[in-house]
């Protein structure tokens, strides 16, 4: 899958995901919001860098 976002679009979307981390830290790890955030973050990384990509592997194994 090739990247589909410009650098500036990718930066904006990643920042948006980062802004939600403080809220997630208040939740339990089983909260569906956490899974939702994680899935969306992976999608953003794929759109930013393409798939396969080292960044995606590093993120997924974190």
């Amino acid at each position: 899958i090739p990247p589909s976002l410009s650098s500036s679009q990718a930066i904006e979307l990643i920042k948006k995901q980062m802004e939600q981390i403080d809220k997630l830290l208040q939740l339990h790890c089983d909260d569906p919001e956490v899974r939702k955030w994680d899935n969306l973050t992976e999608q953003v990384i794929i759109r930013a860098f393409g798939k396969p990509h080292d960044n995606l592997d590093v993120y997924s194994s974190a």
Binding site: I11, Q17, H28, N55
Partner: peptide, 24 residues
């Protein structure tokens, strides 16, 4: 729960690194 918090902090650092890459 403790490892969950660590994981989120780790993911935040990774995302910061990705933004730095995109700025280059």
């Amino acid at each position: 729960q403790n490892s969950f918090i660590k994981t989120l902090h780790n993911k935040r650092s990774l995302l910061e690194g990705f933004i730095e890459q995109l700025k280059i």
